[in-house]
Nucleic acid binder design. Structure first.
Lengths: 246, 246
DNA sequence: TCCTATTTTTAACTACACTCAAATAAACCA
DNA sequence: TGGTTTATTTGAGTGTAGTTAAAAATAGGA
Protein backbone atom coordinates (compact mmCIF):
# COMPACT_ATOMS: atom_id res chain seq x y z
CA UNK A 1 0.00 0.00 0.00
CA UNK A 2 1.36 3.43 -0.93
CA UNK A 3 2.05 5.94 1.84
CA UNK A 4 -0.68 8.60 2.07
CA UNK A 5 0.27 12.09 3.15
CA UNK A 6 -2.74 12.42 5.41
CA UNK A 7 -2.02 9.15 7.19
CA UNK A 8 1.38 10.40 8.23
CA UNK A 9 1.59 11.18 11.92
CA UNK A 10 2.89 14.69 11.38
CA UNK A 11 0.18 15.66 8.89
CA UNK A 12 -2.98 14.08 10.27
CA UNK A 13 -4.21 17.23 12.00
CA UNK A 14 -3.85 19.44 8.93
CA UNK A 15 -6.95 20.82 7.25
CA UNK A 16 -7.51 19.98 3.60
CA UNK A 17 -6.24 23.32 2.31
CA UNK A 18 -3.16 23.06 4.55
CA UNK A 19 -2.53 19.53 3.33
CA UNK A 20 -2.80 20.74 -0.24
CA UNK A 21 -0.32 23.47 0.56
CA UNK A 22 2.07 20.94 2.04
CA UNK A 23 1.69 18.81 -1.05
CA UNK A 24 2.74 21.69 -3.26
CA UNK A 25 5.81 22.27 -1.07
CA UNK A 26 6.94 18.69 -1.44
CA UNK A 27 9.39 17.42 -4.00
CA UNK A 28 9.64 13.80 -5.04
CA UNK A 29 13.06 12.22 -4.66
CA UNK A 30 14.29 8.89 -5.98
CA UNK A 31 17.37 7.16 -4.63
CA UNK A 32 19.17 4.07 -5.83
CA UNK A 33 20.76 1.59 -3.45
CA UNK A 34 23.85 3.01 -1.70
CA UNK A 35 22.99 6.50 -2.90
CA UNK A 36 23.52 9.23 -0.29
CA UNK A 37 20.65 11.64 0.41
CA UNK A 38 22.65 13.97 2.61
CA UNK A 39 25.93 13.88 4.42
CA UNK A 40 26.64 14.48 8.05
CA UNK A 41 27.74 18.03 8.69
CA UNK A 42 26.15 19.61 5.63
CA UNK A 43 23.54 22.40 5.98
CA UNK A 44 20.01 21.09 6.47
CA UNK A 45 17.32 22.87 4.49
CA UNK A 46 14.79 20.06 4.05
CA UNK A 47 13.21 17.20 5.90
CA UNK A 48 11.85 14.02 4.41
CA UNK A 49 9.00 11.52 4.31
CA UNK A 50 9.79 7.97 3.22
CA UNK A 51 7.40 6.58 0.62
CA UNK A 52 9.14 3.30 -0.13
CA UNK A 53 12.48 1.59 0.37
CA UNK A 54 14.81 1.86 3.33
CA UNK A 55 17.32 4.41 4.51
CA UNK A 56 20.02 4.20 7.14
CA UNK A 57 21.12 7.14 9.26
CA UNK A 58 24.70 6.79 10.38
CA UNK A 59 27.80 8.47 11.71
CA UNK A 60 31.43 7.73 11.08
CA UNK A 61 34.13 8.02 13.70
CA UNK A 62 37.55 9.47 13.01
CA UNK A 63 39.09 6.02 12.68
CA UNK A 64 36.52 4.93 10.10
CA UNK A 65 34.01 3.07 12.24
CA UNK A 66 30.41 3.42 11.21
CA UNK A 67 27.54 3.56 13.69
CA UNK A 68 24.00 3.24 12.36
CA UNK A 69 21.85 5.57 14.45
CA UNK A 70 18.57 4.60 12.87
CA UNK A 71 16.83 2.84 10.02
CA UNK A 72 13.93 4.68 8.40
CA UNK A 73 10.93 2.87 6.94
CA UNK A 74 8.06 3.97 4.66
CA UNK A 75 5.61 6.26 6.41
CA UNK A 76 8.28 7.74 8.66
CA UNK A 77 9.54 11.30 8.51
CA UNK A 78 13.08 12.21 9.46
CA UNK A 79 15.30 15.25 10.00
CA UNK A 80 12.26 17.43 10.78
CA UNK A 81 13.55 18.46 14.19
CA UNK A 82 16.43 20.33 12.59
CA UNK A 83 13.94 22.89 11.31
CA UNK A 84 14.01 24.60 14.70
CA UNK A 85 17.72 25.16 14.94
CA UNK A 86 19.56 28.36 14.10
CA UNK A 87 21.95 27.08 11.48
CA UNK A 88 20.91 23.49 11.11
CA UNK A 89 23.28 20.89 9.77
CA UNK A 90 22.51 17.19 9.49
CA UNK A 91 23.92 15.28 12.44
CA UNK A 92 23.98 12.02 10.46
CA UNK A 93 24.53 10.77 6.94
CA UNK A 94 21.45 9.32 5.19
CA UNK A 95 22.10 6.49 2.75
CA UNK A 96 19.55 4.38 0.87
CA UNK A 97 20.04 0.69 1.58
CA UNK A 98 17.29 -0.19 -0.86
CA UNK A 99 15.96 1.73 -3.88
CA UNK A 100 13.84 4.41 -2.25
CA UNK A 101 11.24 7.05 -3.00
CA UNK A 102 10.71 10.00 -0.70
CA UNK A 103 9.23 13.42 -0.45
CA UNK A 104 11.37 16.37 0.54
CA UNK A 105 9.89 19.41 2.30
CA UNK A 106 11.47 22.81 2.49
CA UNK A 107 12.09 23.72 6.13
CA UNK A 108 11.44 27.43 5.73
CA UNK A 109 8.15 26.98 3.94
CA UNK A 110 6.97 24.23 6.23
CA UNK A 111 7.91 26.23 9.27
CA UNK A 112 5.85 29.09 7.88
CA UNK A 113 2.87 26.81 7.54
CA UNK A 114 3.35 25.47 11.08
CA UNK A 115 2.88 28.98 12.40
CA UNK A 116 -0.66 28.84 11.13
CA UNK A 117 -1.52 25.60 12.91
CA UNK A 118 -1.00 25.17 16.64
CA UNK A 119 -2.41 21.68 16.30
CA UNK A 120 0.39 20.76 13.93
CA UNK A 121 2.89 22.27 16.34
CA UNK A 122 1.57 19.94 18.98
CA UNK A 123 1.85 17.03 16.58
CA UNK A 124 5.40 18.01 15.90
CA UNK A 125 6.15 18.24 19.60
CA UNK A 126 4.56 14.84 20.21
CA UNK A 127 6.73 13.44 17.49
CA UNK A 128 9.90 14.96 18.91
CA UNK A 129 8.98 13.86 22.40
CA UNK A 130 8.69 10.30 21.15
CA UNK A 131 12.06 10.52 19.50
CA UNK A 132 13.64 11.84 22.69
CA UNK A 133 12.21 8.93 24.58
CA UNK A 134 13.55 6.40 22.12
CA UNK A 135 17.01 7.97 22.21
CA UNK A 136 17.03 7.70 25.99
CA UNK A 137 16.10 4.06 25.65
CA UNK A 138 18.92 3.70 23.18
CA UNK A 139 21.41 5.17 25.65
CA UNK A 140 20.05 2.84 28.28
CA UNK A 141 20.60 -0.11 25.96
CA UNK A 142 24.13 0.95 25.14
CA UNK A 143 25.19 1.48 28.72
CA UNK A 144 23.16 -0.92 30.85
CA UNK A 145 22.62 -3.87 28.51
CA UNK A 146 25.23 -6.18 27.06
CA UNK A 147 25.47 -7.28 23.44
CA UNK A 148 23.31 -10.38 23.96
CA UNK A 149 20.59 -8.32 25.66
CA UNK A 150 20.56 -5.93 22.74
CA UNK A 151 20.39 -8.62 20.09
CA UNK A 152 17.62 -10.36 22.03
CA UNK A 153 15.82 -7.03 22.30
CA UNK A 154 15.97 -6.52 18.55
CA UNK A 155 14.62 -10.00 17.83
CA UNK A 156 11.90 -9.58 20.42
CA UNK A 157 10.84 -6.30 18.82
CA UNK A 158 10.72 -7.95 15.41
CA UNK A 159 8.55 -10.71 16.81
CA UNK A 160 6.14 -8.21 18.35
CA UNK A 161 5.93 -6.02 15.27
CA UNK A 162 5.45 -8.86 12.81
CA UNK A 163 3.15 -10.68 15.20
CA UNK A 164 4.68 -13.95 14.07
CA UNK A 165 7.13 -16.55 15.38
CA UNK A 166 8.95 -16.53 12.07
CA UNK A 167 10.07 -13.35 10.39
CA UNK A 168 12.67 -11.99 8.00
CA UNK A 169 15.41 -9.56 8.97
CA UNK A 170 14.69 -6.72 6.57
CA UNK A 171 18.18 -5.24 6.55
CA UNK A 172 21.61 -6.82 6.04
CA UNK A 173 22.95 -8.35 9.25
CA UNK A 174 25.91 -6.02 9.16
CA UNK A 175 23.60 -3.00 9.23
CA UNK A 176 21.54 -4.41 12.08
CA UNK A 177 24.75 -5.18 13.95
CA UNK A 178 25.90 -1.59 13.62
CA UNK A 179 22.44 -0.42 14.69
CA UNK A 180 23.02 -2.38 17.90
CA UNK A 181 26.60 -1.16 18.19
CA UNK A 182 27.99 -4.63 17.83
CA UNK A 183 30.49 -5.95 15.31
CA UNK A 184 29.13 -8.27 12.58
CA UNK A 185 31.25 -11.12 13.95
CA UNK A 186 29.78 -10.68 17.40
CA UNK A 187 26.26 -10.42 16.01
CA UNK A 188 26.76 -13.69 14.16
CA UNK A 189 28.20 -15.39 17.24
CA UNK A 190 25.27 -14.27 19.39
CA UNK A 191 22.70 -15.55 16.90
CA UNK A 192 24.56 -18.84 16.88
CA UNK A 193 24.62 -18.92 20.64
CA UNK A 194 20.87 -18.25 20.87
CA UNK A 195 20.38 -21.09 18.39
CA UNK A 196 22.44 -23.45 20.52
CA UNK A 197 20.24 -22.67 23.49
CA UNK A 198 17.21 -23.36 21.26
CA UNK A 199 15.76 -19.91 21.86
CA UNK A 200 15.67 -19.17 18.14
CA UNK A 201 16.29 -20.94 14.85
CA UNK A 202 18.30 -19.12 12.19
CA UNK A 203 18.15 -19.83 8.48
CA UNK A 204 19.84 -17.11 6.47
CA UNK A 205 17.93 -13.96 7.31
CA UNK A 206 14.87 -15.89 8.48
CA UNK A 207 14.44 -16.17 12.22
CA UNK A 208 12.05 -18.43 14.11
CA UNK A 209 11.49 -17.76 17.76
CA UNK A 210 11.31 -21.06 19.64
CA UNK A 211 11.25 -19.74 23.19
CA UNK A 212 9.66 -16.31 23.33
CA UNK A 213 9.66 -16.11 27.13
CA UNK A 214 13.36 -16.72 27.35
CA UNK A 215 13.97 -14.21 24.55
CA UNK A 216 11.98 -11.55 26.36
CA UNK A 217 13.78 -12.32 29.57
CA UNK A 218 17.12 -11.84 27.84
CA UNK A 219 15.97 -8.60 26.24
CA UNK A 220 14.97 -7.11 29.60
CA UNK A 221 11.81 -5.76 28.00
CA UNK A 222 8.54 -5.52 29.79
CA UNK A 223 5.96 -7.85 28.22
CA UNK A 224 2.96 -5.55 28.65
CA UNK A 225 4.27 -2.11 27.86
CA UNK A 226 6.89 -3.27 25.42
CA UNK A 227 9.38 -1.06 27.17
CA UNK A 228 12.59 -1.63 29.00
CA UNK A 229 12.44 -3.12 32.45
CA UNK A 230 14.54 -1.20 34.86
CA UNK A 231 15.21 -1.72 38.48
CA UNK A 232 13.60 0.75 40.85
CA UNK A 233 14.39 0.20 44.50
CA UNK A 234 11.25 -1.23 46.01
CA UNK A 235 9.19 -0.25 43.00
CA UNK A 236 6.69 -2.34 41.11
CA UNK A 237 5.08 -1.26 37.85
CA UNK A 238 1.43 -0.44 38.57
CA UNK A 239 0.43 -1.74 35.16
CA UNK A 240 2.19 -5.04 35.01
CA UNK A 241 2.98 -5.95 38.59
CA UNK A 242 6.47 -6.37 37.29
CA UNK A 243 9.36 -4.38 38.56
CA UNK A 244 8.56 -0.79 37.65
CA UNK A 245 9.10 -0.14 33.98
CA UNK A 246 10.10 2.82 31.90
CA UNK B 1 22.57 35.61 40.73
CA UNK B 2 19.07 34.27 41.08
CA UNK B 3 17.38 32.65 38.09
CA UNK B 4 14.83 34.94 36.45
CA UNK B 5 11.79 33.38 34.82
CA UNK B 6 12.00 35.67 31.82
CA UNK B 7 15.66 34.85 31.19
CA UNK B 8 14.84 31.19 30.83
CA UNK B 9 15.09 29.97 27.27
CA UNK B 10 11.61 28.51 27.23
CA UNK B 11 9.92 31.63 28.55
CA UNK B 12 11.73 34.49 26.82
CA UNK B 13 9.14 34.91 24.06
CA UNK B 14 6.21 35.12 26.46
CA UNK B 15 4.31 38.39 26.79
CA UNK B 16 4.12 39.97 30.24
CA UNK B 17 0.59 38.74 30.95
CA UNK B 18 1.55 35.23 29.79
CA UNK B 19 4.61 35.30 31.98
CA UNK B 20 2.46 36.35 34.89
CA UNK B 21 0.12 33.48 34.15
CA UNK B 22 3.05 31.06 34.08
CA UNK B 23 4.22 32.42 37.39
CA UNK B 24 0.89 31.69 38.98
CA UNK B 25 1.02 28.12 37.64
CA UNK B 26 4.37 27.49 39.21
CA UNK B 27 4.96 25.91 42.56
CA UNK B 28 8.16 26.30 44.51
CA UNK B 29 9.89 23.07 45.52
CA UNK B 30 12.75 22.56 47.92
CA UNK B 31 14.88 19.42 47.94
CA UNK B 32 17.57 18.30 50.34
CA UNK B 33 20.64 16.41 49.20
CA UNK B 34 19.87 12.85 48.04
CA UNK B 35 16.16 13.62 48.03
CA UNK B 36 14.27 12.18 45.06
CA UNK B 37 12.06 14.52 43.01
CA UNK B 38 10.46 11.79 40.92
CA UNK B 39 11.16 8.20 40.15
CA UNK B 40 11.61 6.52 36.81
CA UNK B 41 8.38 4.93 35.63
CA UNK B 42 5.97 7.09 37.65
CA UNK B 43 3.31 9.22 35.90
CA UNK B 44 4.60 12.63 34.82
CA UNK B 45 2.28 15.56 35.48
CA UNK B 46 4.78 18.36 35.91
CA UNK B 47 7.98 19.73 34.48
CA UNK B 48 10.61 21.74 36.29
CA UNK B 49 12.90 24.74 36.26
CA UNK B 50 16.03 24.64 38.39
CA UNK B 51 16.60 27.73 40.51
CA UNK B 52 19.58 26.58 42.53
CA UNK B 53 21.45 23.41 43.40
CA UNK B 54 22.09 20.39 41.22
CA UNK B 55 20.01 17.41 40.15
CA UNK B 56 21.02 14.18 38.49
CA UNK B 57 18.81 12.28 36.07
CA UNK B 58 19.55 8.58 36.10
CA UNK B 59 18.41 5.08 35.28
CA UNK B 60 19.07 1.83 37.05
CA UNK B 61 19.60 -1.47 35.26
CA UNK B 62 18.15 -4.73 36.47
CA UNK B 63 21.40 -5.78 38.07
CA UNK B 64 21.66 -2.55 40.04
CA UNK B 65 23.95 -0.48 37.85
CA UNK B 66 23.22 3.23 37.72
CA UNK B 67 23.66 5.35 34.62
CA UNK B 68 23.48 9.12 34.97
CA UNK B 69 21.75 10.42 31.85
CA UNK B 70 22.15 14.06 32.68
CA UNK B 71 23.01 16.65 35.30
CA UNK B 72 20.73 19.67 35.56
CA UNK B 73 21.98 23.12 36.56
CA UNK B 74 20.22 26.33 37.61
CA UNK B 75 18.41 28.02 34.73
CA UNK B 76 17.69 24.73 32.98
CA UNK B 77 14.27 23.20 32.57
CA UNK B 78 13.76 19.45 32.43
CA UNK B 79 11.05 16.87 31.76
CA UNK B 80 9.09 19.37 29.66
CA UNK B 81 9.08 17.16 26.57
CA UNK B 82 6.90 14.60 28.37
CA UNK B 83 4.02 17.06 28.23
CA UNK B 84 3.31 15.98 24.66
CA UNK B 85 2.93 12.27 25.30
CA UNK B 86 -0.31 10.40 25.78
CA UNK B 87 0.27 8.90 29.18
CA UNK B 88 3.57 10.35 30.16
CA UNK B 89 5.80 8.67 32.70
CA UNK B 90 9.25 9.85 33.69
CA UNK B 91 11.95 7.94 31.81
CA UNK B 92 14.53 8.72 34.51
CA UNK B 93 14.79 9.21 38.24
CA UNK B 94 15.59 12.76 39.39
CA UNK B 95 17.68 13.06 42.56
CA UNK B 96 19.13 16.18 44.15
CA UNK B 97 22.89 15.92 44.56
CA UNK B 98 22.97 19.30 46.31
CA UNK B 99 20.27 21.13 48.25
CA UNK B 100 18.08 22.48 45.49
CA UNK B 101 15.25 24.92 44.80
CA UNK B 102 13.04 24.54 41.78
CA UNK B 103 9.77 25.56 40.25
CA UNK B 104 7.25 22.95 39.17
CA UNK B 105 4.78 23.61 36.35
CA UNK B 106 1.63 21.69 35.75
CA UNK B 107 1.75 20.08 32.31
CA UNK B 108 -1.95 20.43 31.56
CA UNK B 109 -2.09 24.10 32.44
CA UNK B 110 1.14 24.95 30.69
CA UNK B 111 0.07 23.05 27.61
CA UNK B 112 -3.11 25.11 27.59
CA UNK B 113 -1.10 28.29 27.70
CA UNK B 114 1.17 27.07 24.90
CA UNK B 115 -1.86 26.81 22.62
CA UNK B 116 -2.15 30.58 22.89
CA UNK B 117 1.42 31.27 21.83
CA UNK B 118 2.86 29.86 18.63
CA UNK B 119 6.08 31.66 19.45
CA UNK B 120 6.39 29.67 22.63
CA UNK B 121 5.67 26.49 20.71
CA UNK B 122 8.60 27.32 18.48
CA UNK B 123 10.74 27.95 21.53
CA UNK B 124 9.72 24.61 22.89
CA UNK B 125 10.53 22.92 19.60
CA UNK B 126 13.90 24.63 19.46
CA UNK B 127 14.57 23.38 22.94
CA UNK B 128 13.60 19.82 22.10
CA UNK B 129 15.57 19.92 18.88
CA UNK B 130 18.64 20.89 20.86
CA UNK B 131 18.08 18.04 23.25
CA UNK B 132 17.72 15.57 20.39
CA UNK B 133 21.00 16.75 18.98
CA UNK B 134 22.79 16.36 22.27
CA UNK B 135 21.42 12.86 22.74
CA UNK B 136 22.69 11.89 19.30
CA UNK B 137 26.08 13.26 20.27
CA UNK B 138 25.85 11.19 23.44
CA UNK B 139 25.18 8.02 21.45
CA UNK B 140 28.09 8.91 19.22
CA UNK B 141 30.31 9.27 22.26
CA UNK B 142 29.19 5.97 23.72
CA UNK B 143 29.70 3.98 20.56
CA UNK B 144 32.50 5.63 18.65
CA UNK B 145 34.69 7.05 21.41
CA UNK B 146 36.61 5.17 24.06
CA UNK B 147 36.71 5.97 27.76
CA UNK B 148 39.74 8.25 27.47
CA UNK B 149 38.15 10.22 24.62
CA UNK B 150 35.03 10.74 26.71
CA UNK B 151 36.89 11.87 29.81
CA UNK B 152 39.00 14.21 27.69
CA UNK B 153 35.81 15.50 26.10
CA UNK B 154 34.30 16.27 29.49
CA UNK B 155 37.38 18.13 30.67
CA UNK B 156 37.61 20.03 27.40
CA UNK B 157 33.99 21.11 27.76
CA UNK B 158 34.63 22.28 31.31
CA UNK B 159 37.58 24.30 30.12
CA UNK B 160 35.53 25.96 27.38
CA UNK B 161 32.57 26.72 29.64
CA UNK B 162 34.61 28.11 32.48
CA UNK B 163 36.94 29.91 30.09
CA UNK B 164 39.81 29.07 32.38
CA UNK B 165 42.74 26.68 32.52
CA UNK B 166 41.89 25.78 36.08
CA UNK B 167 38.43 24.76 37.15
CA UNK B 168 36.56 22.73 39.72
CA UNK B 169 34.59 19.58 38.99
CA UNK B 170 31.17 20.59 40.29
CA UNK B 171 29.87 17.09 40.91
CA UNK B 172 31.37 14.08 42.71
CA UNK B 173 33.77 12.15 40.50
CA UNK B 174 31.60 9.09 40.81
CA UNK B 175 28.63 10.94 39.35
CA UNK B 176 30.69 12.34 36.49
CA UNK B 177 32.05 8.88 35.83
CA UNK B 178 28.55 7.47 35.54
CA UNK B 179 27.61 10.41 33.31
CA UNK B 180 30.38 9.23 30.98
CA UNK B 181 29.42 5.58 31.39
CA UNK B 182 32.70 4.72 32.99
CA UNK B 183 33.36 3.09 36.36
CA UNK B 184 34.83 5.33 39.08
CA UNK B 185 38.01 3.26 39.12
CA UNK B 186 38.47 3.74 35.39
CA UNK B 187 37.72 7.46 35.65
CA UNK B 188 40.36 7.81 38.33
CA UNK B 189 42.89 5.84 36.32
CA UNK B 190 42.31 7.96 33.21
CA UNK B 191 42.77 11.21 35.15
CA UNK B 192 45.99 9.77 36.52
CA UNK B 193 47.11 8.78 33.06
CA UNK B 194 46.39 12.26 31.65
CA UNK B 195 48.41 13.67 34.54
CA UNK B 196 51.34 11.40 33.72
CA UNK B 197 51.31 12.67 30.16
CA UNK B 198 51.27 16.22 31.57
CA UNK B 199 48.06 17.08 29.74
CA UNK B 200 46.34 18.04 32.97
CA UNK B 201 47.16 18.47 36.65
CA UNK B 202 44.75 17.03 39.22
CA UNK B 203 44.40 18.20 42.80
CA UNK B 204 41.28 16.80 44.43
CA UNK B 205 38.44 18.10 42.32
CA UNK B 206 40.52 20.94 40.88
CA UNK B 207 41.80 20.41 37.37
CA UNK B 208 44.38 22.48 35.53
CA UNK B 209 44.73 22.01 31.81
CA UNK B 210 48.40 22.05 30.87
CA UNK B 211 48.10 21.06 27.23
CA UNK B 212 44.80 22.16 25.79
CA UNK B 213 45.63 21.17 22.21
CA UNK B 214 46.41 17.63 23.19
CA UNK B 215 43.27 17.47 25.31
CA UNK B 216 41.14 18.64 22.41
CA UNK B 217 42.82 16.18 20.12
CA UNK B 218 42.01 13.35 22.53
CA UNK B 219 38.41 14.51 22.88
CA UNK B 220 37.85 14.46 19.12
CA UNK B 221 36.01 17.75 19.41
CA UNK B 222 36.16 20.41 16.80
CA UNK B 223 37.88 23.56 18.14
CA UNK B 224 35.70 26.08 16.33
CA UNK B 225 32.21 24.67 16.51
CA UNK B 226 32.72 22.90 19.79
CA UNK B 227 31.16 19.81 18.30
CA UNK B 228 32.35 16.31 17.65
CA UNK B 229 34.71 15.74 14.80
CA UNK B 230 33.64 12.89 12.65
CA UNK B 231 35.15 11.40 9.58
CA UNK B 232 33.39 12.10 6.31
CA UNK B 233 34.98 10.45 3.29
CA UNK B 234 36.65 13.22 1.38
CA UNK B 235 34.84 15.88 3.36
CA UNK B 236 36.26 18.95 4.99
CA UNK B 237 34.33 21.23 7.30
CA UNK B 238 33.67 24.47 5.41
CA UNK B 239 33.96 26.44 8.63
CA UNK B 240 37.16 25.10 10.10
CA UNK B 241 39.03 23.52 7.25
CA UNK B 242 39.13 20.51 9.51
CA UNK B 243 37.60 17.21 8.62
CA UNK B 244 33.90 17.87 8.32
CA UNK B 245 32.27 18.25 11.67
CA UNK B 246 28.86 17.55 13.11
C1' DT C 1 26.17 -21.42 -15.68
C1' DC C 2 30.46 -19.83 -14.00
C1' DC C 3 33.04 -16.22 -11.99
C1' DT C 4 33.48 -12.34 -9.05
C1' DA C 5 32.30 -9.55 -5.27
C1' DT C 6 30.16 -9.11 -1.09
C1' DT C 7 28.36 -10.77 3.12
C1' DT C 8 28.43 -13.88 6.80
C1' DT C 9 30.56 -17.26 9.63
C1' DT C 10 34.22 -19.49 12.20
C1' DA C 11 38.52 -19.52 14.75
C1' DA C 12 42.40 -17.84 17.47
C1' DC C 13 44.06 -14.08 19.81
C1' DT C 14 43.99 -9.40 22.12
C1' DA C 15 42.77 -5.39 24.76
C1' DC C 16 39.95 -2.23 27.05
C1' DA C 17 37.48 -1.49 30.63
C1' DC C 18 35.32 -4.09 34.42
C1' DT C 19 35.44 -6.70 38.91
C1' DC C 20 37.10 -7.58 43.24
C1' DA C 21 39.79 -6.24 47.05
C1' DA C 22 42.27 -3.32 49.88
C1' DA C 23 44.52 1.08 51.02
C1' DT C 24 44.19 5.91 51.27
C1' DA C 25 41.95 10.23 51.44
C1' DA C 26 38.25 13.21 52.31
C1' DA C 27 33.91 14.50 54.44
C1' DC C 28 30.84 14.39 58.39
C1' DC C 29 29.35 14.40 62.91
C1' DA C 30 29.27 13.78 67.80
C1' DT D 1 39.32 16.24 68.16
C1' DG D 2 38.59 11.45 67.21
C1' DG D 3 35.90 8.17 65.03
C1' DT D 4 32.86 6.82 61.40
C1' DT D 5 31.29 6.94 56.93
C1' DT D 6 31.80 7.82 52.21
C1' DA D 7 34.58 8.79 48.20
C1' DT D 8 38.63 8.03 45.69
C1' DT D 9 42.76 5.68 44.44
C1' DT D 10 45.68 1.75 43.55
C1' DG D 11 46.62 -3.01 42.37
C1' DA D 12 45.85 -7.55 40.38
C1' DG D 13 43.22 -10.44 37.68
C1' DT D 14 39.23 -11.35 34.47
C1' DG D 15 35.81 -11.26 30.77
C1' DT D 16 33.30 -9.38 27.03
C1' DA D 17 33.47 -7.91 22.87
C1' DG D 18 36.84 -6.41 19.39
C1' DT D 19 40.65 -7.54 16.02
C1' DT D 20 42.72 -10.11 12.55
C1' DA D 21 42.53 -13.59 9.24
C1' DA D 22 40.57 -16.93 6.54
C1' DA D 23 36.84 -19.99 5.09
C1' DA D 24 32.16 -20.49 3.66
C1' DA D 25 27.96 -18.86 1.95
C1' DT D 26 25.31 -15.78 -0.71
C1' DA D 27 24.29 -12.49 -4.24
C1' DG D 28 25.03 -10.43 -8.70
C1' DG D 29 26.58 -10.01 -13.40
C1' DA D 30 28.39 -11.64 -17.75
Amino acid sequence: MPVELRDTYLFTTLTDPQLEQVRTLSRKINLGEDEVLFECGTPASRFFLMLSGQIKLSRLSMDGNEKVIGIVHPGNTFAEALMFQEQPSYPVTATAIKDSELLGFDNQQFSQMLRGSVDSCFRMMGDMSQRLRSLIKEIDDLTLQNATNRVAGLLYQYQLMREAETFTLDAPKGVLASRLSVKPETFSRILHHLSDKEIIRVKGNKITVLNSDELRELSHEDPFTGTKKINIPGGVCPLTGNKRCL
